[in-house]
Structure formats: C-alpha cells, structure tokens
C-alpha cells in the first residue's frame, strides 16, 4: 500500500523526510487532526503540541511549537516554527523551561503586563509541548 510522504521543515533545517507513513496525528488549531493516505487537499495552522507519525506498528514523536501543515496528493508538508524529535528533547531542560515560564507568568499577571503574560503563556505552551512529546513517546 502506498503511504504518505511526510516532510517536516523548520527555518533552520529539514527536520524529517519519511516515505510510507500510514498515519499522521497533528495538533491543528481546531483540535487533533488525523491524516491517512488519500486525504483531501488541506492547509491548516498548527498549535504547539506533538506530531506523531505511524508506519504500521512503528511510531515516532516530534514536538512542534506551532506552524502550518499542508496535504497535497499524499504529500504532507509541515512548516514548523521549531521542531525536535522526542529523542532530541532534554526532559530536564523542558521541565526547567516550564518552571521558568510558570514563574514569568505569575510575575506578569501580578504586574498586569499583557505582552509579558502572552509571551510567558506561549513559552509555557512550548515547554508543555516538548514534555508531552517525551511522555507520549515513552508510552509508545
């Protein structure tokens, strides 16, 4: 069976190019999105979260800090703001980032600084996306 070709690119590099993918799970802004072969052409915005690709029983996980996804003739292209495979993510660093973001968020809320609050919230979402990616990949 012909599968999907998945390409994940970030501004700094091509993160991944895989053929024969059977299922892609992606965090769209409207909720979790599942893509199987022969999917209709689609362009969507992605939220911070985990990108999962399956090839039969095999699965791989990538963190995405937001981006865009396009499906066209069984070719799926993900333009990620930043993306790392689960094995590249350091759990300690992600947890430290989460703690820092929580502290910033708290401080920003107390001073009613809207810009800081938004930035801290986005940083928190990015840290959580990384942590969840690690956790999901360990569960398999």
């Amino acid at each position: 069976m012909a599968g999907l070709t998945l390409t994940v690119v970030s501004p700094e590099r091509e993160v991944l190019r895989e053929d024969g993918v059977t299922l892609i799970l992606a965090p769209s802004v409207d909720g979790q999105l599942g893509i199987l072969p022969r999917h209709a052409p689609l362009i969507t915005q992605l939220a911070p979260g985990t990108l999962e690709l399956r090839r039969g029983a095999d699965s791989q996980h990538f963190s995405i800090t937001g981006g865009f996804l396009e499906v066209m003739n069984d070719t799926v292209t993900v333009l990620a703001d930043a993306s790392e495979s689960a094995s590249e993510i350091s759990r300690e660093r992600a947890e430290a980032a989460r703690e820092a973001a929580l502290r910033d968020l708290d401080a920003a809320r107390r001073t009613h600084d809207d810009v800081m609050t938004t930035q801290a919230r986005l940083a928190l979402l990015r840290a959580l996306a990384r942590l969840r990616t690690v956790e999901r990949s360990q569960r398999g």
């Binding site: 501004p11 769209s28 209709a40 052409p41 689609l42 915005q45 865009f68 066209m72």
Partner: peptide
Amino acid sequence: READIIFEPDPASVLEALIPRFVEMTVY
C-alpha cells in the same frame, strides 16, 4: 486553481498567520 483545498480555519486567517513567518524567513 488546484483541486479544492480545505482550509482550517479559513484561507484569510491562515494567510494572515503565515505572512509574519514569511517575513521572518526573508530576514533570516
């Protein structure tokens, strides 16, 4: 125009979100 494409949420909002990335990429 290519085969009808589904846009989520809609083309104008995706485009609006994509333009800053495009400018960042150009400067980068």
